[in-house]
Design a protein around this nucleic acid. Structure first.
Length: 205
DNA sequence: CGTTCGATGCACT
DNA sequence: GTGCATCGAACGT
C-alpha cells in the first residue's frame, strides 16, 4: 500500500525513522525500480542552518513550504539529483533526505543506469552499492529534476509500505555538511550494507 | 587499502 | 563570483 499523506504531516523527527523499511518506487522509462529505505537525514525549518529553508523562502526551496508527502528534488554539485520527502504541515519547511536503499526490484535496470556514462561494467557493481548514497540512488532509480514536486502518495514516484520486518535504527550526525553538524538527525538501519558513510556498528567486533 | 582532486550547473548574495 | 545535503577516477602506500 502507498504511504498516506498523514504519515508525512508529522514532526520530521518522527517521520524520519518511520521511513526506514518503507520502499521507494519509481516507474520510469526503462522500467520500474524500487528499494528499501535504509538511511535518511532530517532537515528541519529555517532555524536549521543546513536546511535549504535556512535563507527563508526562495524559488528553489519552495517545495519545502508546500504540502507534506511531495518530493523535493534538487541538483547538487552540478551533477547529482537528491530526493527528499517533504514533511510537517504545509507552511513549515522541512524534509527527509533519502540517502540509501537496498535494491528490492528492478536491479538489472539499476545496474544499467549506474553503469551508463562510467567506465565500470554493469556487473561490476555489488547489489549493496547500487543505491548507496543520495546521488547514487537517484541515478539508479532514474529520478531527475522533473520529479521535483511529484506527489509521493500518488503517481510514478511513490513511497510504499510492503509490510517488511521492522529494522533496528541508529541515530548519528548528518553527513556532508559544514553547518548544523552537531545534531544527530541521520537515521540508518543497523547492519545494512547499503548504508553510506560511517556505519554504526551492530555489535561488538 | 588510503587520500586527493576534478567534474559540473545553478541558486543565491 | 561563491559554494554546495556528491561521486569516481587516479594515484600513493
Amino acid at each position: 500500500m502507498i504511504v498516506p499523506r498523514a504519515f508525512y504531516a508529522r514532526p520530521t523527527l518522527e517521520v524520519a525513522p518511520d521511513l526506514i523499511g518503507r520502499v521507494l518506487v519509481h516507474d520510469a522509462r526503462g522500467g520500474t525500480a524500487a528499494g528499501v529505505i535504509v538511511e535518511v537525514e532530517a532537515y528541519i525549518g529555517e532555524s536549521d542552518p543546513a536546511c535549504h529553508a535556512a535563507p527563508g523562502p526562495t524559488k528553489r526551496n519552495a517545495p519545502l513550504y508546500g504540502p507534506p508527502g511531495i518530493a523535493y528534488v534538487y541538483l547538487n554539485y552540478g551533477m547529482h539529483n537528491l530526493v527528499n520527502a517533504v514533511t510537517e504541515p504545509e507552511g513549515f519547511p522541512a524534509a527527509v533526505l533519502i540517502r540509501a536503499l537496498e535494491p528490492i526490484a528492478g536491479e538489472d535496470i539499476m545496474r544499467r543506469r549506474r553503469a551508463r556514462g562510467t567506465k565500470r561494467r554493469r556487473d561490476a557493481f555489488t547489489t549493496a552499492e547500487l543505491c548507496r548514497g543520495p546521488g547514487n540512488l537517484t541515478r539508479a532509480l532514474g529520478i531527475t529534476l522533473r520529479d521535483n514536486c511529484r506527489d509521493l502518495c500518488d503517481g510514478p514516484l511513490r513511497i510504499e509500505d510492503w509490510g517488511l520486518p521492522r529494522r533496528d535504527v541508529a541515530w548519528s550526525r548528518r553527513i556532508g555538511i559544514n553547518v548544523g553538524v552537531e545534531t544527530e538527525w541521520r537515521v540508518s538501519a543497523v547492519g545494512s550494507d547499503a548504508v553510506s558513510g560511517p556505519r554504526v556498528r551492530a555489535g561488538s567486533p
